[in-house]
Amino acid sequence: MLAKILVVDDEPSIIDVLTRFLSREGYEVVTASNGREALERVTEVWPDLILLDVTMPELDGFSVCQRLKEDEKTALIPITMLTGLDDREHRTRGIEAGADDFLTKPFEQSILRARLRSQLRLKRLTDQLEHTEGVIFMLAAAVEAKDAYTEGHLRRLRTYSEQLAMAFGLGPEEVRAVRYGGVLHDIGKIGVDEAIIRKPGPLTPEEITQMRRHPEIGAQIISQMRFAREVAPIISGHHEYWDGSGYPRGLKGHDIPIGARIITIVDAYDAMTTDRPYRASLGDEEATRRLIAGRGTQFDPDLLDVFLDLIRSGKLQPEQVRAEVLHGGEL
């Protein structure tokens, strides 16, 4: 399958030169003559690489690059910026906008050829990694499927954790990490005996020990993912308690990553407000009472107060209004 390259330039002569060169090199070429058209074309054709002119009317290349890099759906498309000025200011602005590479006009064919191959090779590796990540998310769903009583648990935790993170004022990157942590927090249970997971009664000390390994197993499973640095601490710490009595490391207070503290709260709430093998749902009133009882011991008091406000105000929603698909699997 031919690699697809989007060429964006307001000079017809440059588009013509690049189109002829890229076609000879065996690439499929798509073109746009300005920044706004480029943004439309990206979502129409999903290119493997974008050659983006810096100076264009209305919406310049820096603005286009920044918009694409800030959007999760397009952030991983390599962007090579084209400039007629080989100066530090343009490169600095391009780096700040998220550009992956730079080329100076007029183009030297050998350099252009080498840069294209390098960027497309990186894109193929990224695509392979995305496929691996898709498998990881599917594994998380498979773990959930082991227990009929936790149906929808991952979807609710993703939604609850994202709402709490946003209400607490976390930035977009932190919110995304928390959302992924909500989906993947229990993936380590794939390393736990299924009989233990399904057991309706109390666990033996040996079974408890095995079950308590799942946060660290989960962190290891996702260790090679692009977002592992942000998400792995959430997974490994989601059973740590504010007073230091949790596991696996006995972390205390703000030593526990904030994403893990969020998951601890929403996981407990979801467990109390859904039917389990050993009891029916406790309902919101009792769940709220028990959350308050754990304030400052099990739960971060500041985060808990924000979460309780969401519940009391009716703003906490178990499902997002919009449907969302994560890495090829709807969760």
Score class of each variant (00 low, 15 high):
166 M>G: 14
126 T>M: 13
320 Q>W: 07
155 R>W: 12
241 Y>G: 01
323 A>T: 12
1 M>G: 11
281 S>N: 11
309 D>Y: 04
196 I>P: 08
152 G>L: 03
316 L>G: 00
176 R>Y: 05
304 L>A: 01
82 L>K: 03
5 I>A: 05
169 G>P: 05
205 P>C: 09
263 I>M: 00
26 G>T: 11
92 T>K: 14
199 K>H: 11
304 L>P: 01
295 R>K: 14
34 N>S: 12
92 T>R: 15
140 A>V: 02
91 R>D: 07
177 A>K: 01
107 F>D: 12
302 D>V: 07
31 T>D: 11
97 A>M: 05
65 C>W: 06
75 A>I: 10
206 E>T: 10
283 G>A: 05
61 G>T: 07
189 K>V: 07
4 K>E: 05
110 S>Y: 13
202 P>Y: 11
115 R>G: 10
138 M>E: 13
66 Q>R: 15
321 V>Q: 13
286 E>N: 09
11 E>S: 14
198 R>I: 13
181 G>I: 02
308 L>E: 02
204 T>A: 08
57 P>G: 03
11 E>K: 07
66 Q>F: 09
46 W>R: 15
169 G>Y: 02
324 E>L: 07
267 D>V: 00
163 Q>E: 04
180 Y>E: 09
249 R>I: 04
224 Q>Y: 15
112 L>E: 01
147 D>E: 10
226 R>S: 14
270 D>V: 00
133 E>I: 14
139 L>W: 12
231 V>G: 00
320 Q>C: 10
44 E>K: 15
144 E>Y: 02
90 H>F: 13
242 W>E: 10
277 P>N: 12
45 V>C: 09
259 G>A: 02
55 T>L: 15
103 L>K: 06
168 F>C: 04
148 A>H: 13
255 D>C: 05
166 M>F: 13
156 R>M: 04
286 E>P: 03
125 L>P: 12
255 D>I: 02
22 L>A: 06
100 D>A: 03
250 G>M: 03
164 L>P: 03
283 G>T: 03
182 G>A: 00
208 I>D: 12
40 E>S: 14
66 Q>T: 10
32 A>I: 07
273 T>G: 04
260 A>Q: 00
123 K>E: 06
52 L>T: 12
48 D>H: 11
220 Q>G: 13
194 E>T: 15
202 P>L: 14
154 L>Y: 04
298 Q>R: 15
91 R>Y: 09
259 G>N: 01
239 H>F: 10
74 T>S: 08
108 E>T: 10
142 A>G: 10
251 L>G: 01
188 G>M: 05
43 T>A: 14
252 K>H: 09
150 T>K: 08
53 D>T: 06
152 G>H: 06
171 G>M: 00
69 K>Y: 07
236 S>T: 08
245 S>R: 11
99 A>E: 08
52 L>P: 12
258 I>R: 02
145 A>I: 08
68 L>T: 04
295 R>D: 08
118 S>I: 13
311 I>C: 00
8 V>D: 00
175 V>C: 11
151 E>V: 09
27 Y>P: 08
287 A>S: 05
128 Q>D: 13
47 P>V: 08
100 D>N: 09
182 G>R: 00
56 M>E: 03
165 A>E: 01
285 E>T: 11
183 V>Q: 05
143 V>Y: 01
45 V>I: 09
215 P>F: 03
135 V>P: 10
134 G>N: 07
154 L>Q: 06
70 E>R: 14
223 S>W: 10
234 I>A: 01
264 T>Y: 00
211 M>V: 14
84 G>I: 07
